[in-house]
Design a protein around this nucleic acid. Structure first.
Length: 512
DNA sequence: TTCCGACAGTGGGGTCGCAAT
DNA sequence: ATTGCGACCCCACTATCGGAA
């Protein structure tokens, strides 16, 4: 199949807003892909590279290569070239990658170039990713969408499922079963604003500690342990203490879901940054593990002794977990009968926060494990802080925000009337707010360098955030975590904005 | 007819490792 | 030695479509 066909379909998918039409376009293309093309075409149309990332970014892509006049590139040709580009390492590798990317772009037409650049930078922006590609694949093969979706969850890979179902038809989907050693997409949680809201929605539920660490899925098959992240990357080699903990458990074959977190001597959680740094370090794992040991804390069991537990209610899965994993390695929890039992849930949240953790996850007791979906049966609740800050500057937006001032630079007040930047946010704005703030900030503009518009510090905005974290980027040595706009405070003058001092006082743990 | 679940888009900060400077 | 860059951790929120109620 020619790349030009793919690039054209991608443009057509981007041009329509109707999901049904996007699915039909994707399905039509997949139907024409042969078994060799499919494992390339499908991830491309889901906006992803089969090779994963290649170490190619704007630096290498922005070289301005004149396009080819006629389309000649096939998708298999492109795949082979990209595989070669990804394999380049060592001194001078960036120059060599740049040369190879230049050759590829020179062989591509204008439309193909634009598609390749979008693909390599992860900015396909066609309004269709994995979920719609799954629907398109179902349409192309006559399989039920739910069956394809489940196979993808269990395989942890759309590409593998696509190859099988295109080669052998819908019957091939039955072969995808939960298998120890093969990671599955983890179940995710929605957000609720309070424990009362969460318990009100779920009824009988478990309220569990939410730990601020790294999600892990642990597979053990006899003597072999594999550990995967939320995106299914294999990090077994980075967590030797977790692997040996898994080998000490009483079962021989299982899949567990949980979190790893660094704790201090008193058992209090260390900052997310410390856990993340530890789990991220790859070179000298023994030294890293000695300096910052991490603890596994499990909360679910997906498979035990060859039994697939995914469709069992959470109560039954947890019973299996409790048989296998001793209490200190399980997440702390309390059971709640329903809204009549709210006080117990509130008390548990308060106790969890006192122990230094992030919040709680409220889980329906009767729900199955919805792999790969943000099922509404898990609801996280975290405390939210708010502050009134001042807009110091704003950045021009991209994509659907092109032409709008989007990303705000936020400042807190100093005693002398100046402001200290604490971070940025683009979250929480409605389209109406984007339009309004673009006009208002243009009135306050003192400079526009084409990327950042600096403004007079006069506009006050109420910002919600999850806490302070240490920063080497911002002058106060701290920054806001997950900042988002709540509303503009035109009733407030900048002299009434909150101060750096008050923030540091409110979050003493983060002070530099 | 209205409501709501699922998706995609829009980017935030940090850390690590690698290659270039 | 320092800097720049990409990958991958954590993540909130709004708009939209289309099926469910």
């Amino acid at each position: 199949m020619l790349l030009s066909r793919l690039a054209r379909v991608s443009r057509e998918v981007a041009a329509t807003s109707a999901r049904s039409r996007k699915i039909a376009l994707l399905g039509g293309l997949f139907r024409d892909a042969d078994a060799e093309d499919a494992p390339i075409v499908i991830p491309y149309l889901a906006g992803r590279l089969p090779q994963g990332r290649l170490g190619v970014g704007w630096k290498i892509l922005g070289q301005g290569v004149p396009p080819a006049a006629e389309p000649t590139l096939t998708v298999r040709d492109v795949d082979a070239r990209l595989t070669r580009i990804g394999a380049v390492t060592g001194v001078g590798s960036q120059a060599e990658r740049k040369r190879l990317v230049g050759e590829l772009l020179a062989a591509a037409t204008d439309e193909e170039q634009r598609f390749l650049v979008a693909l390599l930078t992860g900015e396909v922006r066609q309004g269709a990713l994995d979920a719609l590609a799954v629907e398109g694949l179902a349409e192309a093969t006559g399989a039920a969408p739910a069956d394809v979706r489940r196979a993808v969850m269990l395989a942890g890979s759309l590409r593998t499922v696509a190859r099988a179902v295109l080669a052998n038809g819908p019957g091939a989907l039955d072969a995808f079963r939960l298998t120890v050693g093969r990671p599955v997409l983890p179940m995710l949680a929605h957000t609720a604003s309070s424990v009362a809201e969460a318990v009100g929605k779920l009824g009988a539920c478990a309220v569990e500690e939410k730990l601020d660490g790294i999600r892990v899925q642990v597979h053990r098959d006899g003597d072999v342990v594999r550990i995967h992240t939320r995106t299914l990357d294999d990090i077994t080699g980075r967590l030797p203490e977790l692997a040996s903990a898994a080998l000490r458990l009483a079962g021989e074959r299982f899949i567990l879901d949980g979190e790893v977190i660094a704790l201090d001597e008193d058992g209090r959680p260390r900052s997310f940054q410390e856990t993340s740094g530890r789990v991220g370090s790859r070179l000298d794992v023994a030294t890293a593990a000695a300096a910052v040991p991490v603890s596994p804390v499990f909360f679910d069991a997906l498979s035990v002794d060859g039994r697939d537990l995914l469709d069992l209610p959470f109560t039954d899965r947890h019973a299996e977990l409790a048989r296998l994993v001793p209490e200190p390695m399980r997440v702390r929890r309390t059971l709640v009968e329903g809204p009549g039992d709210l006080a117990a849930a509130e008390a548990f949240l308060a106790e969890t926060l006192r122990r230094g953790h992030e919040g709680v996850v409220v889980k329906a007791l009767d729900s199955p494990y919805s792999a790969g979906r943000r099922g509404a049966s898990w609801l996280k609740v975290k405390p939210v802080h708010t502050r009134d800050l001042v807009v110091l500057a704003a950045e021009w937006g991209h994509g659907r925000r092109t032409g709008k001032l989007s990303n705000l630079h936020l400042g807190a007040r100093n005693p002398d009337g100046s402001f200290t930047m604490l971070g940025k946010t683009f979250k929480g704005m409605t389209d109406a707010m984007l339009t309004w703030q673009t006009g208002r900030l243009k009135e306050l503009a003192v400079e526009d360098n084409g990327w950042v518009v600096t403004v007079r510090p006069e506009l006050v905005v109420e910002i919600a955030y999850d806490g302070l974290q240490r920063s080497s980027r911002y002058p106060a040595g701290v920054t806001l975590r997950f900042a988002r706009v709540v509303r503009y405070r035109e009733d407030k003058r900048p002299e009434e904005a909150d101060t750096v001092e008050s923030l540091l006082t409110a979050h003493p743990g983060a002070a530099p």
